[in-house]
């Protein structure tokens, strides 16, 4: 077992454990924190795969921006109390079993992927495609059109924030 495998194992266990904690935590704030841990574990995987750019962007975007917003909203709503009433235990169990079955089916379907063939190995710690220079070059040549188009997405999200967040004048008059 070399260091890479060790790291892979550790990160995987961490990722799955914290994902499980995310789902099972009663307190939403804990869920957020566990999700952040998951993101870090996944970022670790990216670094193992030498996808440095994505590793960093993952942290900046997900951990640094998205999860802050989540935390923010949860704190604003003061959801720290365990407001979620106890759900039917059986339903929970059913959900878990259904998920497990889904996993089993998917894995069983995909187990045929030949893991012995050298082409079916993910290259670790090598290859420069994950470096920002290469990604940038590709992004601004081949993928420049979708890149530009994705700005539309942000514009609409921006408008959305305005439309949904702005206080209605009539509303104030009513209160």
């Amino acid at each position: 077992m070399n260091i890479i495998e060790l790291l892979f194992g550790t990160l995987s266990v961490l990722a799955i454990f914290s994902a499980l904690m995310l789902v099972t935590s009663k307190n939403p704030v804990y869920s957020v924190l566990w999700l952040i841990v998951t993101f870090f574990a996944i970022s670790g995987h990216y670094i193992l795969l030498n996808a440095q750019f994505l590793a960093i962007v993952n942290i900046i975007v997900y951990a640094g921006a998205i999860m802050v917003l989540f935390l923010f909203v949860i704190m604003l709503m003061n959801l720290n109390k365990e407001t979620e009433p106890q759900k039917n235990r059986w339903l929970k169990l059913a959900g878990a079993v259904a998920g497990g079955c889904l996993l089993l089916v998917l894995v069983a379907a995909l187990k045929d992927v030949d893991s012995k063939k050298p082409e079916n190995f993910a290259l670790l710690n090598g290859g420069n495609t994950g470096l920002i220079k290469n990604l940038g070059k590709e992004l601004f040549t081949t993928y420049v059109v979708p890149f530009e188009i994705s700005s539309v997405l942000f514009l609409s999200a921006m408008i959305g924030a305005v439309v949904l967040g702005k206080k209605e004048k009539q509303n104030e008059a009513a209160h």
């Binding site: 059109v145 979708p146 188009i149 994705s150 997405l153 609409s156 959305g160 949904l164 209605e168």
Partner: peptide, 24 residues
Amino acid sequence: LLTLFLGIEIISIPLYILTGSDKR
């Protein structure tokens, strides 16, 4: 598939907003 995905999202996200636009 990339442009398909982007397209579908660009359709969906404004729709979410429009759906909820009657805030009261």
